[in-house]
Design a protein around this nucleic acid. Structure first.
Lengths: 153, 153
DNA sequence: TTTAAAATCTACTAAATCTGTAGACTAACA
DNA sequence: TGTTAGTCTACAGATTTAGTAGATTTTAAA
């Protein structure tokens, strides 16, 4: 299960993607609209900024905004910032490889063989899903729901 | 990342699968051979037993053994016992559905749409990989490594 | 029927991680 | 130079992880 931190971060990114190129957004507004504790959100946005996904401006008229277009930010990049590596075991991580402490021979570890496949399957999805893709899917889902409601009336 | 508990549990299952139908195996032997803290292993094996994956016999000549053939035990079943549901968010879990506390409309939640795909991709792998499959892959990997060693001599 | 072996149950505990909070500080704009 | 808004430092409660200790129950064999 992903942490609340990751959920909040993804919500924030989707929120900012919706308002791409409309100037900096206030943490306060984001926290209020998405029901995220403000102080907690601060630390999350800061991490996303330090990773290059977000940019910010201080002072009056300041706030946070996407560092690049929603087409160029993937869900995978964001998850790695907030949750850490995608890999279920460190020895199959592409971005943060580490030897498993309890593992003997890495080449013949059965757990590793399976988890490598799992990691690749997860990466295949999240590294090929951009914020723009997410917005599009939300739009389709909202349309589909609207039709269901219209039909049921 | 999966917990040590899950890793230990999978190691234990692979160990027991290797010795399927050779009588009960002692916790002590398993703990020693796989370098798992014995007391911790006890709780893990008990959980696997309570879920039906393992069976046990008490007293002299007792120990743990697979409750069914290695062909009929999947990695997914085992992971769910030790780690909980595969789903990254509770609202897409097939085996332990729960509404996300912070989620408004489930049908149009962008995070949910992506995480549903992730869950399905993970399940596709681990629910179709049996302990027998793992043993087979380990065998192949050992063979491959042996050939590399032979060649390099 | 006693004894020894082995799983099971109850009850802790230390450390790490998660989910925040408080308050001072810095930068930018008017 | 005052106000706004992000940034930094530090802490704290709750939960989860990774164990440990010791008593109890069950079973097989002597």
């Amino acid at each position: 299960m992903i942490s609340k931190k990751t959920k909040y971060g993804l919500k924030a990114l989707i929120y900012l993607a919706r308002q791409y190129e409309q100037g900096p957004i206030l943490i306060s507004d984001l926290a209020r609209d998405e029901n995220i504790p403000k102080k907690f959100l601060e630390t999350i946005l800061l991490a996303l900024k330090n990773s290059g996904i977000l940019q910010s401006r201080k002072g009056k008229g300041g706030g946070y905004y996407l560092g690049r277009s929603p087409r160029q930010i993937t869900v995978g990049q964001a998850i790695r910032v907030m949750e850490g590596p995608l890999a279920p075991v460190p020895c199959v991580s592409e971005t943060a490889y580490a030897k498993c402490t309890e593992c003997g021979n890495e080449n013949t570890c059965g757990i590793r063989l399976v988890m490598k496949d799992v990691r690749d399957a997860i990466a295949q999805i999240v590294d090929n899903t951009t914020l723009a893709d997410v917005l599009e899917r939300i739009g389709q889902a909202e349309l589909a729901e609207k039709n269901v409601v219209d039909f049921s009336i």
